[in-house]
């Protein structure tokens, strides 16, 4: 089953990469080549893929993921304006530090997505991830050094959605 899902994902990437639909006619030769290549690649690398393939079948996860995209892009844009402001300000208003936060997410993919989201959102960057759910965040403007309060500010805005998508 996980080989089948990997096969589908690889085929989608292949089709986006070669894009056989341009010019009105469909280029079947590239699609057949993609099917063969994805088949063998998924046979070889299927064991290394995800640990819980059943999660790919939940339709609700995709809906939450679609809801997550605009929220993520918006905070990404805010992050960039924030950095631009700090960098262009003549006094360089920064108060950096590394704080500790705790997440209740468990699965590896969820923690990866959370760490990546934190890195791309205003003023924060993941430095270290521990197995017991603690993350160390480099914060360019430390508002709260306390674990609980920093968790409220940094982690909570993504945690609920990511829990629905990945857990």
């Amino acid at each position: 089953m996980r080989k089948g899902i990997l096969f589908l994902l690889l085929l989608i990437v292949w089709i986006l990469l070669v894009w056989p639909f341009s010019g009105g006619a469909v280029d079947y030769q590239s699609i057949v080549a993609g099917v063969v290549v994805s088949f063998f690649a998924s046979l070889v690398f299927g064991e290394l893929f995800t640990e819980s393939p059943h999660k790919f079948l939940g339709v609700k996860r995709y809906l939450w993921a679609i809801l997550y995209i605009p929220i993520f892009l918006w905070s990404c844009l805010l992050a960039n304006l924030d950095v631009a402001y700090r960098v262009l300000h003549p006094l360089l208003p920064i108060k950096p530090g590394i704080v500790k936060v705790k997440t209740r997410l468990k699965s590896k993919s969820a923690i990866t997505a959370l760490a990546n989201s934190i890195t791309l959102t205003p003023g924060t960057m993941t430095v270290e991830v521990l197995d017991d759910g603690y993350l160390y965040i480099h914060w360019i403007w430390v508002k709260e050094a306390d674990v609980e309060k920093a968790t409220l500010i940094i982690v909570r805005r993504f945690e609920n959605l990511l829990e629905r998508i990945f857990e």
């Binding site: 990404c76 960098v87 791309l120 960057m125 480099h138 360019i140």
Partner: peptide
Amino acid sequence: RLPDLYNRLQAATKCVTL
């Protein structure tokens, strides 16, 4: 402009990604 490696990584990652 930013002073140390971690702050520089912040600027580089966010702005260059978007």
